[in-house]
């Protein structure tokens, strides 16, 4: 048996990672150069994966790095690099419907805040009666995290999982047919 994991400087890392994620996110939408945006997005993704680790979800964190930062972002960069940067830099950054975007963002923020406030005080699980907000002191067994995800995906949610993979397959086929001159 491994000894009890003792988290070190947890609040510090939480604020560091969240700060990095937010700064990265802001940079993504403000940089004029698409490659800089993509690099900022990678920083955000890595910071979020660090947050997953802190939430005792190591598998999700690892997959986040492999799939998003290592795979998808590389393909993103692959495409962006071929785009004529000179032209994109000169184009306008925001279009005329940005007030609608701000409105939507504000609404989302309101939703988050209300869920946080209400979840902490009022809401409770209808079946067990326990508060919906997990007890911050609880420590989840982290060793079986990957196994639990596997059981969930290939057991309880097998159908949904397979449907999702079929959907992706259709998307891939569509992309191939659209891009290929002759099959």
């Amino acid at each position: 048996m491994t000894p009890e994991m003792t988290p070190v400087a947890t609040p510090f890392f939480f604020y560091l990672l969240s700060g990095l994620a937010i700064i990265g996110g802001v940079l993504v939408i403000t940089r004029r150069n698409a490659v800089h945006s993509a690099l900022a997005l990678i920083v955000t993704l890595l910071a979020v994966s660090g947050l997953y680790l802190m939430l005792y979800a190591p598998f999700v964190a690892g997959v986040q790095i492999i799939v998003y930062a290592g795979g998808i972002m590389v393909l993103f960069l692959f495409v962006i690099m071929l785009v004529n940067i000179e032209r994109t830099v000169k184009e306008r950054q925001f279009n005329r419907i940005w007030p609608a975007g701000v409105l939507a963002a504000a609404a989302l923020l309101g939703l988050f805040v209300s869920v946080y406030v209400k979840g902490k005080t009022l809401l409770s699980d209808p079946v067990t009666g326990k508060p919906l907000w997990p007890d911050p002191t609880i420590s989840l067994p982290d060793s079986s995290n990957t196994q639990q995800i596997g059981v969930m995906l290939y057991g309880n949610y097998m159908f949904a999982f397979e449907i999702a993979s079929l959907l992706l397959l259709v998307a891939i086929l569509g992309a191939v047919i659209m891009a290929k001159k002759r099959i």
């Binding site: 490659v35 190591p58 690892g62 790095i65 492999i66 930062a69 290592g70 960069l77 060793s143």
Partner: peptide, 20 residues
Amino acid sequence: NIGILFMLGVSSLGVLGIVT
């Protein structure tokens, strides 16, 4: 406990250095 995932993931980030 995700050692191998971590290794594969982080080593796959190396390509970003080359691409950039």
